[in-house]
């Protein structure tokens, strides 16, 4: 008991000294800036240190990178780590460079990056958006400068937007949903690679609390279903990778069909990349 008391007291006095200081962060940031190249990604480990990382290096982390689908497209990952933590973005990689900056460890990981042949969010304005009623009637949505607008409900129906899904940032095609109709987002002549990565989920913690409906996303290539993703209050950000290696190198139509059983308080978002 006495030993425990001494240990706990010593820890209470010494543990604060082990925390990274502002100086440590500035030193690590300087080292990152010296080697940073466009297309790199910078991550904090543990993830809760991310606000401090962004305070020092946020100008190198644009919204599109912070709201990425995943880290597969980044060949170089800078990780600023503390207390021995490791970022999930670096899993399976070996560090090419490592340095200590006080209580922080900076590592640069290099690995083969996925080549993105088509980013469906970035290319949102190439989509054809429509609503299909249960009887098969199609109503087309028109393209405004920064979004698609459908008649029912008369709101910004499809838009590339930064969403909060599973309390994380995701730049996605945000979709407000109609009851009794399928929202169809179709892209023609999409250059396909070996896989089609699709992430999806429901936006906004308050809406996830208020609503009950489940959203279903059906992914089709050339009219053939690759798979579905269900999004509910507790499903978070679901990432699926569909094999398209049989179609690699070809340009095909990719169609996303979105339905919901109860559209109240549902704001759905998905992002997708064709990759090789």
């Amino acid at each position: 008991m006495v030993a425990l008391a001494l240990l706990e007291t010593a820890n209470a006095l010494l543990a604060p000294l082990r925390a990274p200081t502002d100086r440590d962060w500035r030193a690590a940031a300087t080292a990152v800036r010296a080697g940073f190249r466009p297309g790199d990604v910078i991550v904090a480990a543990p993830a809760w240190a991310d606000p401090l990382l962004r305070m020092h290096l946020g100008d190198l982390i644009p919204v599109a990178v912070a709201g990425r689908l995943d880290a597969a497209r980044f060949g170089r990952v800078w990780e600023i780590s503390q207390r021995g933590a490791r970022a999930p973005e670096t899993e399976g990689s070996r560090p090419a460079q490592s340095s200590r900056h006080g209580a922080l460890t900076l590592r640069r990981y290099e690995r083969p990056a996925s080549q993105v042949s088509f980013d469906f969010v970035a290319e949102w304005n190439r989509a054809i958006v429509s609503r299909v009623a249960p009887g098969g009637q199609v109503s087309w949505c028109y393209r405004a400068p920064d979004h698609f607008e459908c008649a029912d409900p008369p709101a910004q129906s499809v838009k590339a937007e930064l969403l909060e899904i599973d309390t994380s940032p995701h730049l996605a095609l945000a979709t407000s949903l109609a009851s009794h109709a399928t929202t169809v987002i179709e892209f023609d002549r999409v250059p396909l690679g070996r896989e089609l990565a699709v992430g999806a989920g429901l936006h906004n913690v308050w809406l996830r609390k208020a609503g009950k409906g489940t959203v279903s996303l059906r992914v089709l290539v050339q009219g053939r279903e690759l798979g579905r993703i269900q999004a509910g209050n507790l499903t978070g950000w679901t990432l699926r990778k569909f094999d398209t290696s049989a179609l690699a190198g070809q340009s095909e139509s990719v169609r996303f069909e979105i339905t919901v059983d109860d559209p109240n308080s549902r704001y759905f978002g998905f992002a997708a990349e064709a990759r090789s």
Binding site: A15, P16, A19, P20, W48, A49, P51, L52, R54, M55, L57, G58, D59, I61, P62, V63, A66, G67, Q82, A103, L162, L163, E164, T167, S168, P169, N204, V205
Partner: peptide, 28 residues
């Protein structure tokens, strides 16, 4: 559950960089 408010700032201010962070023992 307040993450959404930070992302609203990112969009409104066109940056992901906070100008200041208050942290205790390195925890923001």
């Amino acid at each position: 559950h307040f993450a959404v408010y930070e992302y609203l700032h990112w969009e409104a201010y066109q940056t992901t960089r906070p100008a200041q962070v208050y942290a205790h023992e390195g925890v923001p």
